[in-house]
Design a protein around this nucleic acid. Structure first.
Lengths: 110, 110
DNA sequence: ACCATCCGTAAGTAACAGCTTACGGTAAGT
DNA sequence: ACTTACCGTAAGCTGTTACTTACGGATGGT
């Protein structure tokens, strides 16, 4: 039930860019901030949102925080999307196969 | 390359609710607005965003507009997520299998 | 012709989200 | 003990966004 947070988290372009950076492997905050158009605190705030959405895991290494992708949030999002995908295709196919659907027209078409 | 718009569109809870309504089949605007906590124009605006994101298709039936899920936007979103899913699992597995990664520590761990 | 239904758009407002700078806390090196 | 590096949080500002009401165009029935 965390897919809603995951969607909201991945909606922001900057945050998505941080997330895509982590696809290459775990990274510290400072390293993530380098090469980004925003400041380091901004990256920290984005990481906080991603973490609360279950998309990212935090691991301490001395004074540094290493962030990595958490498959959990990604999985729940994928499940939601797949379920949606199947149902949508069913409805789409049913609409195509029947020229005059049962409840489609209420007052006649033409 | 429309997955970013799709993510932004599905980020809003109300808009997601409209979209999930359409999972049951094509609906007119007025019918979608009934049972929603917001006004009909608000639903129209949400449908416009969903349409621009490629998530929804519009079909005119007299004075009514019938909206239905467009598999296109859903597909691009799914592809992006799948690619992400694979890469993330690879990186995750690689990180687990190697106790001491190559560039993980810069000044030594302890 | 008239009226009712269905809907999109414009304008205005209030809440939210993302960014910056400033600050404090923790850990490692000397 | 002192300094440096690394990072999270608070406070404040600003642009965006989701909502409302009001309006007008298009279609269908009588």
């Amino acid at each position: 039930m965390t897919y809603n947070n995951a969607l909201a988290a991945l909606a922001d372009p900057t945050r998505r860019r941080v997330f895509e950076q982590l696809r290459l492997g775990p990274r510290a905050v400072g390293r993530l901030a380098k090469g980004m158009p925003v400041s380091r605190p901004a990256v920290s705030q984005h990481l906080k949102v991603l973490k609360e959405a279950g998309l990212v895991r935090e691991e301490r290494d001395g004074a540094r925080r290493i962030y990595a992708i958490d498959p959990k949030g990604l999985g729940s999002l994928r499940r939601w999307l797949d379920q949606f995908w199947d149902d949508a295709l069913d409805a789409f196919q049913a609409a195509v196969e029947s020229p005059s659907p049962p409840k489609q027209t209420r007052r006649g078409r033409k």
